[in-house]
Every structure is written in C-alpha cells, then in structure tokens.
Amino acid sequence: MSLEAVKAKNDNNSAPIKLNRKDFISDQDVRWCPGCGDYAILATLQNVLPKMDVPREKQIFISGIGCSSRFPYYMETFGFHTIHGRAPTIATGLKSHRPDLTVWVITGDGDGLSIGGNHLIHALRRNVDLKIILFNNRIYGLTKGQYSPTSEFGKKTKSSPFGSVDYPLHPLTLALGSEATFIARTHDTDVKHMMQILEAAGKHKGSAFVEIYQNCVIFNDNAFSEVSDKQHRDDRSIQLIEGEPLIFGKDKNKGIRLNGFKPEIVEFDSQQVPENLLTHQSDLEDTAYAYMLSRMESPEFPIPIGIFRQIRRPTYDEMVQSQVDNAIQESGRGKIDRILNSGDTWIVE
C-alpha cells in the first residue's frame, strides 16, 4: 500500500485496507548473495505480515549483526539494525514500553547463540512477547566462513583448518531450557511450511522462538540436505502435526515410539499403523517430550520439523504494564510534589 493509501485510511478511519506483500517491501536493494536462503525467508515474512491483522506501523523488526540482521532494511516497517547479539535487549525494552507493538527479532546462529546467547535465554525465560526468528546456517557468513556454535564437531573452516573442537549446541533444546513458550523449526526450502510456522509464531502471545534452517550457498552449501534434498527428505525428516502420530518416510511406513525413556524408530506396513506410536502434542506444560524431539538428530533419527511447543503464560510486558496499572488504580496517579516533600521535612522561616 502506498503512503497515500495509508494516510487515506487514517483520515477517514474506515475499515482496515487489506495489506499485501508489496506493502512490506522497502525501497532498499536487497544485498544478500544470489541463491541465499534469506531471500525465501524475506518473501515469506512479507507474505505473512498481511495475515497478522496488525497495522504496518505497529510491526517492528529488530536485528543484531550478521547476514540475517540486514533483514529490517528490506521491510517497509519500523526497523532497527542494532549491534551484535543485543537485538533481544532492545526488543525487550521496546516491547516493555510499548506493549501495543508487534516486535520481531531477526537473528542468526552467531548473533543469537554466540555473542548474544545470554540475551536470548533471558528474553525467552521472561516470556517477553517477541517473535524471535533465528536463521541457522551453521556458519559465520558476514565474516566470511568461520565455524559457528551450531557447526558440526570437526568442521573444517578458515578458522578451524584442523577441524573444529567445539561441540555444537541445539538451539531448540536451549530455547526449551530457557522456558520459551513457543518453539518451532522450519526450513527455507519449504515456503508453505515456513508460512504456517511464521504465522503461528506471529500470532503467539509470548516469546516465540523459530529456528529456520537456512542455506548459505557460499560458505556452507547443502548444510541441511536432510530437509532440502527432495529425494531423501521424507525419510530423513518428520513433520510434527498436532494430534497425529509421529510417522515419516516416503511410504509413511516408519514411526517413532518410546522404548523406556528413549525414542526409537519402528517400521510397519503403512496400512497398519501401530497403536504405540507417539502422538504429537505441542501444548504440554511438561517439557520432556519436546526435549526428546529437540535432541533427535540425523542420521540416527529423522529431523523434526514443525511446532515443538506452544503454551500460554502471562507475558513479561503484560505483567510490567499491569503492575503500573494496578499501582495507579490502588494509590492514584502519583503526585510529584508529594514525593518531593516526602520524608522528614522542616520549615525555615
């Protein structure tokens, strides 16, 4: 929508004009490498925002530093490209002061999990109403190809010619340990799935954490073949569908069940689904099941894709605001003269 249209809408205060993707495209040239997965994510979010029923001026994008963090420049919304790792802090301050805004945080595996790991976990545990989208490409792109906190053990990069000796972390396990109330994974090669997940994250009330497997064509191409390779992906990944049993495979003949505390794969005749397969449920307060899913890794297990957890808890910004509202309701709007004159006072004549 053009500026004029927005203003026209303001002026006559009529029913909201339906926004579309074009309304969210800024006039800045997109400068990611050709073939970068970020393009698909950008287009998807620009398609998701019109579905949010939130006016454009109330959608805010805040990012840190890295390839992914250039994102706000390309969105025709309010945006803030901040400093390395600190986007969740700025977003927390903004959302706390302005609970009326929808605040998105765009980050990457370096920005969000390495330099900004501390802020990420605290934003999640406080359940600040933020939509945190982590583009995980398992590499440092903008600094030209060093290993990241999600790079595989032993990965050879410019800064690890003999192989990295860092054990990688699992972003979703971390999010779960940080008490995030919405946790999901999607990938840049399935636009439809990304749409669903980002829309659900956008509409979630509380801290939403979405890991997007994002391909870096230059420094880490094909890092997510389990989900991107059309030939094998049905056997190497599993779609989490609410209320449905955990079934995967091209022929839908494999499932996940529990053996003691451990998941195991069971193969079956696709006409006869065994009864003891796990059924997907994302609304459990208990984190054990979601934790188990978050640890399922290739090649032993299919990679779970979808919403791992989605629960409702009062949000930080709501509670901060309600303390203010309650204080005003209980004792009336504060009077500064009363504060100035508080304590023991005396008069000099």
Binding site: P88, T89, N118, R333, G334, I336, I339
Partner: peptide, 28 residues
Amino acid sequence: FKNFGLKTLQNEDEIAAIGAAIGAAFGG
C-alpha cells in the same frame, strides 16, 4: 514509583540494560 506510570526493568546484564533503554527510547 510505579503509580507515576514509570517502568523499571532489572535486566540480565549491563549491556541488556542499556539495550532495553535504547529500545524504550526508540518507542518514545
């Protein structure tokens, strides 16, 4: 002094504290 409409945030570290303040300033 919450009944003045003010908000106080105890942040996770010094950087988070200034970050949150910058975010609040962005918000007016």
